[in-house]
């Protein structure tokens, strides 16, 4: 057992409100990212605010709230965080990103069928044939509604065809 792990286990024992604790950590992470990114924006003054004033003020507030949440979670009791199921979420998120990558070069039909098959893969009781049929049907429906009837600017087929 490494020293870090011992420290972590100790901490974990003292965290009495895990939901608050992790919310606090999440807020601090966002605040830190925001304030780091906002370093380059000029602050201006309260009278003539620059583009950095609001982000810095918000980032500071968010960080402070996060810190209070973290500290409080060590003392006030709270609920545990439910189990995080990484797999279905990451599969679906990947599917969404794939759609973004594929749509412009490959067109709506391919991109939509792929994202729906990937998503179906995330479900426990999906049936392959059914998923394919649904994907094809929805792709046809979407082309009909969004592209033909509503004339939204979506490419249907791969651009190299």
């Amino acid at each position: 057992m490494t020293a870090a792990r011992v420290l972590w286990l100790n901490c974990r024992m003292t965290i009495r409100a895990p939901k608050d604790f992790w919310s606090g950590i999440m807020f601090i992470a966002f605040a830190a990212t925001a304030m780091l990114a906002a370093r380059g924006y000029s602050l201006g003054s309260a009278g003539k605010m620059g583009p950095g004033y609001f982000p810095m003020a918000l980032g500071g507030t968010l960080g402070l709230i996060g810190a209070i949440l973290v500290v409080r979670s060590l003392f006030a009791p709270g609920e545990p965080v439910g189990r995080i199921h990484v797999l279905p979420l990451s599969i679906i998120a990947t599917g969404v990103a794939l759609f973004g990558i594929m749509l412009e070069p490959l067109g709506l039909v391919v991109a939509l069928i792929v994202v729906m098959l990937v998503a179906a893969f995330a479900g426990r009781d999906s049936r392959p044939l059914e998923a394919v049929a649904l994907a094809v049907a929805l792709a046809a429906f979407s082309v009909g509604i969004f592209v033909v009837a509503l004339r939204l600017p979506l490419p249907i087929w791969p651009s190299f065809l």
Partner: peptide, 13 residues
């Protein structure tokens, strides 16, 4: 015609 042509436009030949 607009509906028809949108088919063509969306599938650039």
């Amino acid at each position: 015609p607009a509906l028809l042509c949108s088919l063509f436009v969306a599938a650039p030949i």
